[in-house]
Design a protein around this nucleic acid. Sequence first.
RNA 1: GCCGCCUUAGCUCAGUAGGUUAGAGCGCUUGAUUGUGGAUCAAGAGGUCCCCCGUUCGAACCGGGGAGGCGGUACCA
Length: 493
Amino acid sequence: MAKKQKIFKPKARVPRGFRDRLGAELISEREMLARISAVYEAHGFDPLETPALEYTDALGKFLPDVDRPNEGVFSLTDDDDQWMSLRYDLTAPLARFVAENYDGLPKPFRRYQVGPVWRNEKPGPGRFRQFTQCDADTVGAPAPYADAEMCMLFADVIEAAGISTDDFFIRVSNRKIVDGLFEKIALDGEADAQTRLTVMRSMDKFDRLGAEGVALLLGPGRKDASGDFTDGAGLDDQRIETVLSFLASGPESSKRDTLDVIAEILGDTKSGEVGLDELIGIKASAPDFETRPILFDCSVIRGLEYYTGPVFEAELTFEAKDDKGRPVQFGSVGGGGRYDGLVKRFKGVEVPAVGISVGISRLLTALEYKQEAAPAAQGPVVVLALEKDRMATYQTMAAELRNAGVRAEVYLGGSNFAKQLKYADKRAAPVAVIQGEDERTKGEITIKDLVLGAALSKNIEDNKEWREDQPAQFTAPRSGLVDAVKKTLARHG
RNA sequence: GCCGCCUUAGCUCAGUAGGUUAGAGCGCUUGAUUGUGGAUCAAGAGGUCCCCCGUUCGAACCGGGGAGGCGGUACCA
């Protein structure tokens, strides 16, 4: 067989875990970001932008023993052999920025930041390798006042994003009361660090696996549905019992005040007491705390590494079904907390900081499910181009509409009448402006209401009728273009 | 990372127990219905049957390896 000369033809494909996004989705994201940013700015946070790449050592993601960055971050070497990585969150770049510009910044320093972050992980449903975060942080303010503000801000921001206060709440805990728990079960020794990690990871799964699953993970280990086995922490029954009662102290399972329950379990431990005081402080410095969608819940763990005090998590509570009818759990759409050690890596001095991070992509997905059958985004008014030598007049019409604040474009594709309407249809144009020879000689235009037409067409079988009646269009004098279009648009909101 | 399932047209999927030209529906393109979206009708384009290696006279189909997708699990700043 004669070999065919193969011309290399790359396969057109988006990289795994990444997405192309278009039109309506981008617009609603932009609007959501604008609403969130407005809330941040109203609270006095200044915008900050930092680059996508940071030196890897600044991100703190070198593996401890190998001279290579953590696998979870996308990394490359600069031409001077220094490792750089795409940022995996907005907090590490903030710490770098604050350390680098420490002396010139007002303290406390309050900034918000919006942008994409990248994680080199296995993508999953609703989980991508590039996604947008929207953070606000206060650097240089000790607990608990800034923490209280962050809780309230968090709730305001999620609400501003478009989630009603019945559909989410901010769960608040404190890393220090977890330390108190470790004291209580005598796991606070130097040698128990590894076990503590395992215990926290298990606790973090409380909402997903429930008490039984967590009990297994705390004890002998657990075999999951795929047959994979996860090693347990190896605690004895009594300690497991203590941990579970701690987790179950949350508001769902207890009629009593969560803080009272925690105090009963941990009150006699040093860290527990400090942690509790901070939570009480948050409650005391937030006005109308009880009426806000904020509650204390000890099963909130968040990241294992850098949080040092209060931790927050925004959780959506409404249920939705995916396109195959299966229930979708949205879970966390943002998190945050106090991290007093982050700037210390650069400066040596401890700089207290607290912040929140809102996951825009997840919120958007959730909102899509929430507004089932969301009204499709409306396209531009399309001015048809029927007479090729009259393009200038069509452009004039479009410009008139734009000047009147109406999104409008001229059809530029060079096809016939039917194709042009088909194009307008596909663009979700609400209105087509038509001026062919007939209208022109009479000094008129035809306004076609495409939304109404689509509705009427459902009841029409016969093509002749469909074509001749044209109930969805009317003529107007050329000079009345803007008024006629606006009037038609107003019919459909 | 680990376990399981899957991969045939743009999409959803048939199909042949290995045999020449691989199919459907939807979508797309073009045209008809005198200058009108839908419906109808006619024609058309579009496939290395995921990739590589092997077995075979012959592989989209069988075997091995790989990649990608889905689901679970682990990790998660």
